[in-house]
């Protein structure tokens, strides 16, 4: 074997290099919009952040004669509102999503399980306004009220499929041998799931819940049709309530001054940071446990 075909080897190397650089370029292309958006929000938004902005509530802008608005107030009520609405949505979606995910991974084998899987996939891909409309028809129309709680129900509808599928996928990553080891000790299946399988998957499941929370916190459409906006801090979920997405939506709607333009970016920045902070907190908390 003395005649090693160098020409052929060179061609192979070239093709390898071209394909590899194409994957790098594609990755960069995908990242560009992400960094542009993030960068713009940070640059524009950070300058709007002040203690005043974070600690006061909405104020109707008074127009002065030269066209510049005076103080437009802050977003404290919207931050609290978003946390309450998305938090309540998590409380509703978590038990349902978690248990359904456990069912699909540990028990669901037949036709019913594949149907549930299909349904959750469709649901997770459906536009958020659909969830809003469903809640509008079922709850808002029948009670003739728009509560923050109804918004939470709509957001929970969006969160459930995400939690179900991530829980299922993560649980399936736990090796079968771990389950067998527990079952062979004479442990009933439900106890094995609770004490052995779930603890091995905590980190991944929490990440799934975080993803769902992040999605819910940023949704606007369902809230438009289900919640009356309040301009002050509210703690009663069976009442009107402000929220960051609604604040951004409304400020955009009545945009008149550079001052409002600034707070718009500020609110977008806070909403992004909120999701990031919760994400980091959960990661830190789970790292310590495992």
């Amino acid at each position: 074997m003395k005649t090693l075909n160098m020409a052929r080897y060179r061609r192979r190397k070239l093709v390898d290099r071209i394909m590899r650089s194409m994957t790098v370029v594609a990755t960069l292309l995908a990242l560009i919009p992400l960094f542009l958006i993030l960068g713009y929000i940070v640059i524009q938004g950070a300058s709007a952040i002040s203690w005043h902005f974070l600690s006061t509530d909405y104020k109707v802008p008074e127009l002065s004669l030269d066209g510049s608005a005076s103080d437009v107030g802050g977003i404290r009520y919207a931050i609290i509102g978003t946390l309450l609405i998305a938090g309540t949505a998590t409380l509703i979606a978590l038990p349902i999503g978690l248990l359904a995910g456990i069912y699909l991974s540990e028990y669901g084998k037949g036709r019913f399980a594949s149907f549930v899987r299909f349904a959750t996939d469709v649901l997770s891909g459906s536009p958020s306004i659909i969830a809003g409309v469903v809640v509008y028809i079922v709850l808002v129309k029948t009670t003739k009220e728009k509560y923050a709680f109804y918004g939470s129900v709509a957001l929970a509808l969006l969160m459930i499929p995400i939690i179900v599928r991530t829980t299922e996928e993560i649980l399936k990553l736990v090796p079968q041998t771990v389950r067998e080891a527990a079952v062979a000790l004479g442990v009933p299946q439900w106890k094995a799931i609770l004490t052995v399988v779930l603890p091995a998957a905590t980190g991944g499941i929490l990440t799934g819940i975080m993803l769902a929370f992040a999605r819910a916190a940023g949704e606007t459409a369902p809230l438009i049709v289900t919640v009356f906006v309040s301009n002050s801090v509210e703690y009663n979920v069976f009442g009107s309530m402000g929220s960051l997405p609604m604040y951004i939506y409304r400020t955009l709607d009545e945009l008149t001054s550079p001052e409002q333009y600034k707070v718009l970016w500020g609110a977008a920045f806070v909403l992004t940071a909120l999701v990031l902070v919760v994400n980091i907190l959960v990661r830190v908390a789970t790292r310590r446990r495992v």
Partner: peptide, 11 residues
Amino acid sequence: TLVRRRVGMVF
């Protein structure tokens, strides 16, 4: 499960 408590297993 009761059977498995009397007949153990190593994999």
